[in-house]
C-alpha cells in the first residue's frame, strides 16, 4: 500500500510539473509572438527582410494556445456553464463525472487527430505556402503535444475524481477581478 501511495505521489508531482513546464513554454511563445512582430515592423522601417514573419507568429500562436491548455484547465481558467452542476447539490459528483467523461473523450479525440495531422503532414511532405517554407509537421508538433497533454489532464482529473471524489481543478483566486 505504502509503495503504491508513493508511486502515485511521484506520478502526481511529475504530471503537475509537466503541465507547469508546458505553460511556461507557452508563455515564452507569447513573448516570441511579440518579438516576431516587433522585428517584422523593424524590417519594414529599416529596409531589411524577414521572410515568413507572419507564418512564424502564427505557429507561435498555435503553440502558445495548445501548450497552455492543460495548466489552464487545472487553474480553472477554461469556462463552463455551471448552473446544472450547482443545482445538483450533493449529487454534484455525478454531474462532474459526466462532464469529465465527455471532456476526456472529446479531448482524446482531438489529441488523436492532432497526432494524425502531424503524421500526415510528415508523410505528405506538406510544407508552408509562405516564404518560410517550413515543413508543417515540425510546427504542428507543439499543437499535438498540447492536445495530448490536455487529454492526459482530463483523464487525470477523471481518475482523481473516481479515486478521491475530487478533481484537481483549483480556481486561482488571483485571476478573479472581483476577489477584493
Amino acid at each position: 500500500m505504502v509503495e503504491q501511495d508513493r508511486g502515485a505521489g511521484i506520478l502526481r508531482g511529475l504530471l503537475d510539473r509537466i503541465y507547469a513546464a508546458a505553460s511556461v513554454v507557452a508563455a515564452l511563445c507569447l513573448v516570441g509572438i511579440l518579438i516576431v512582430i516587433v522585428v517584422q515592423m523593424c524590417a519594414r522601417w529599416f529596409s531589411f527582410t524577414f521572410p515568413g514573419s507572419a507564418e512564424y507568429a502564427g505557429y507561435l500562436m498555435a503553440a502558445a494556445s495548445f501548450l497552455a491548455f492543460a495548466s489552464a484547465l487545472n487553474a480553472g481558467s477554461h469556462i463552463r456553464v455551471g448552473l446544472a452542476l450547482t443545482a445538483l447539490g450533493r449529487h454534484r459528483f455525478w454531474g462532474e463525472l459526466w462532464c469529465l467523461v465527455i471532456a476526456s473523450a472529446a479531448s482524446g479525440y482531438l489529441a488523436w487527430y492532432a497526432v494524425r495531422l502531424v503524421y500526415w503532414s510528415w508523410k505528405l511532405k506538406d510544407i508552408s505556402q509562405g516564404q518560410d517554407a517550413t515543413p508543417l509537421w515540425i510546427v504542428q508538433v507543439p499543437m499535438a503535444f498540447g492536445a495530448c497533454l490536455l487529454a492526459v489532464a482530463f483523464a487525470d482529473n477523471l481518475i482523481a475524481l473516481l479515486l478521491t471524489g475530487r478533481d484537481n481543478i483549483r480556481e486561482e483566486l488571483a485571476d478573479q477581478s472581483h476577489a477584493e
Binding site: 469556462i79 463552463r80 455551471g82 448552473l83 462532464c99 465527455i102
Partner: peptide, 8 residues
Amino acid sequence: GSGVWIGL
C-alpha cells in the same frame, strides 16, 4: 447545459 467545458 450540463457543464461540459465550452470549447469541448
